[in-house]
């Protein structure tokens, strides 16, 4: 391969993104009203997950063409979870426009989420090689279950203020977001037909990036940075979500402060004052730092594991995603920039 030039990177990524867009746009229903809703559901977002599928495959020597069906299936699964998550969390806005349920109604959001996920399985199941179809459907179903389990745990744990097993909480953070990232990189690796240990390594890479992503989302919901994505500041507190941050604070605060926090949480957290007070306690407890440290460690490990791949534009693009794409629309760039550089150009 010729010497790589970083200046080629934007065009390289743009080409992949437009290939993904073209495939997504090719899905139609024989009903203009359904097409309109479908387009709304599928539009928007940075396409990080399908891009991860494509790049992971190409970084391991696979070809772009063979990845697109899988990439589209991953994006549809992601959009399905976006529709259902916004519905369940009653978030009205996403990325500056109305959430699907706010635009088309809750019933349609519930049904469209199921339509998206079943379309993903339909695409995979109709792959020419029935061996691939079966393998990828199995992979998707395992991830789909874990993601739904994380969501169920999330909803069922709201408002529980007792101390909980931190490992379980961390696992739920993985289930909520890490799963689909893991799916993306693992699928990419499998599409490249590499040996199982490499598949394992790529799966772990996605898992780390995705779970770090979730922890940073939790952090940004507290410090207000997430507002730029349309989610209301403190919405996790209002819903009394069991984030790692809250769980860590409950587990480590001195008894008196813990009782104070629990008392605050037991009230209906509606006034900006009470919310800010809780956020301040979480910050002071060191829980926020702990979450950020954990995220940073994973991102560093992810970058380390990337540096062992052969040099390629795909690898550079993957590194850029770990470093920058996560950072768009938030202040993560600083955080990632401040993590020690590792074997990367």
């Amino acid at each position: 391969m010729d010497k790589l030039s970083p200046s080629e990177l934007p065009a390289y990524v743009a080409e992949r993104l437009s290939a993904i867009e073209r495939r997504l746009a090719a899905i139609h229903f024989d009903d203009p009203q359904v097409d309109e809703m479908w387009a709304y559901a599928v539009a928007g977002g940075r396409r990080i997950r399908p891009l991860l599928v494509v790049l992971s495959c190409e970084a391991l020597g696979g070809a772009l063409d063979g990845t697109l069906t899988g990439a589209v299936a991953v994006e549809l699964s992601h959009k399905a979870s976006v529709l259902h998550d916004d519905l369940v969390d009653e978030d009205t806005y996403r990325r500056g426009r109305l959430a699907f349920h706010a635009q088309f109604g809750q019933d349609q959001a519930l049904l469209m989420g199921h339509l998206l996920i079943s379309t993903a399985f339909r695409l995979l199941a109709s792959l020419q090689s029935s061996y691939s179809a079966t393998t990828y459907c199995q992979l998707f179903s395992r991830i789909f279950f874990l993601a739904a389990r994380g969501q169920l745990w999330d909803v069922a744990s709201e408002g529980r203020d007792e101390i909980q097993d931190l490992d379980r909480v961390l696992e739920a953070e993985y289930e909520k977001t890490g799963t689909l990232f893991e799916l993306s990189t693992e699928l990419g690796a499998r599409l490249a037909c590499v040996e199982p240990p490499t598949v394992e390594r790529m799966a772990l890479l996605g898992r780390k990036i995705g779970t770090a992503f979730q922890l940073l989302n939790d952090t940004n919901n507290l410090n207000g940075l997430e507002e730029s994505t349309g989610r209301m500041r403190y919405s996790d507190l209002v819903r009394r979500k069991r984030t790692l941050i809250l769980s860590y604070a409950l587990a480590t605060l001195p008894a008196a402060e813990r009782s104070h926090l629990q008392a605050l949480l037991a009230e209906r957290l509606v006034t900006p004052d009470a919310l800010a007070q809780v956020a301040e306690i979480l910050e002071r407890s060191g829980a926020v730092d702990q979450a950020v440290r954990q995220a940073r460690t994973w991102l560093r490990e992810a970058r380390n594991s990337l540096s062992s791949l052969p040099d390629s534009l795909a690898r550079h693009a993957l590194a850029a995603i770990t470093r920058e794409t996560i950072a768009t629309a938030t202040d993560w760039s600083q955080l990632i920039a401040s993590s020690p550089a590792t074997g990367e150009p």
Binding site: H84, L87, V88, E90, Q106, L110, G113, H114, I117, S118, F121, C137, F140, S141, R142, F144, F145, A147, A148, R149, Q151, L152, V155, A156
Partner: peptide, 17 residues
């Protein structure tokens, strides 16, 4: 209803499983 949305996803994922 929120739990119903999530449970419908759980059941579908278990169906594929």
């Amino acid at each position: 209803p929120r739990q119903a949305v999530v449970m419908s996803d759980i059941l579908m994922s278990l169906a594929y499983q």
